[in-house]
Design a protein around this nucleic acid. Structure first.
Lengths: 138, 138
DNA sequence: ATGACTGCAAAATATTTGCATATTC
DNA sequence: GAATATGCAAATATTTTGCAGTCAT
């Protein structure tokens, strides 16, 4: 929670308990949770928290670059507290969303084709290593 | 329409008028339309077409690789009839979604970190060339 | 005639908004 | 006490589903 508080303060955001809880959960969690996931989890500690607050907070956090908003699933947002440049891999067989520690070479200079880059989003869909192994065993 | 028919047949999909119309629109259109956009446009030619059919068709077409499904906007799908590998750029100032004719170097060999790649999704958000110019003029 | 396709209406899901209450400085 | 944050309920938007009617072979 202290880490979360510091990060919020560094952006001039008032570190309310709810905001710290949301950010803290994302910082300690590399599962790329949905809003529902985050809400369910926080309910255990803060029985009065509302989904509206979770939505508000996530919007504010991603607007400030403290978390990333992932549009990988067709109609559900996911959030990522790990904001170092990286890509994702969605396995179409087991559904796992895997972090890939690779960067986009095209974004190195902060712009592409004359356009200024603020965010880089890269993800792949396919069959993950583990599912490939399972397939071969058959 | 003939081009669309051929592509449908090549995938073993029955080329109904509705399906040809959806695919044909996407092939002749590089605007990355939403379902609503496509529906509105097709209504002019096919006053009885339903949004359900548009949804069904788009799902089938993207499942067969005839069009791409873009998850760039937060809660609205966009579709792209241009399926050569390329990336996109979303301008946060003017809202334009621009095609970038660049490929993902990480995907060259068809897999990343041992995972088999079926789809590559790369997009950037930022300020486009034109909006940067306008900013400078001030 | 059979199976596939279409389209309407209703349902499900995700997200946003309006507003009253509560909290913080 | 003024400004900000929270939380409930209602509204909106998008997508999916169930099903009856239609079309094509």
């Amino acid at each position: 929670m202290e880490n979360a508080r510091k990060r919020l303060e560094s952006k001039g955001i008032r570190p309310t308990y709810q905001r710290m809880a949301v950010l803290s959960f994302l910082l300690g969690n590399r599962t790329h949770p949905s809003v529902e996931d985050i809400y369910e989890e926080l309910l255990r500690d803060i029985p009065t928290i509302s989904k509206t607050t979770v939505y508000n907070t996530l919007q504010m956090l991603s607007g400030n670059g403290l978390v990333s908003h992932l549009n990988i699933f067709d109609s559900q947002s996911r959030y990522d507290g790990f904001t170092e440049p990286h890509h994702h891999f969605l396995c179409e067989s087991c559904g796992k969303l895997i972090d890939l520690m690779i960067k986009c070479p095209n974004a190195k200079i902060g712009c592409v084709m004359g356009h200024k880059i603020n965010e880089v989003h890269g993800y792949f869909k396919g069959i993950c290593k583990d599912c490939l192994k399972k397939e071969r065993r058959r």
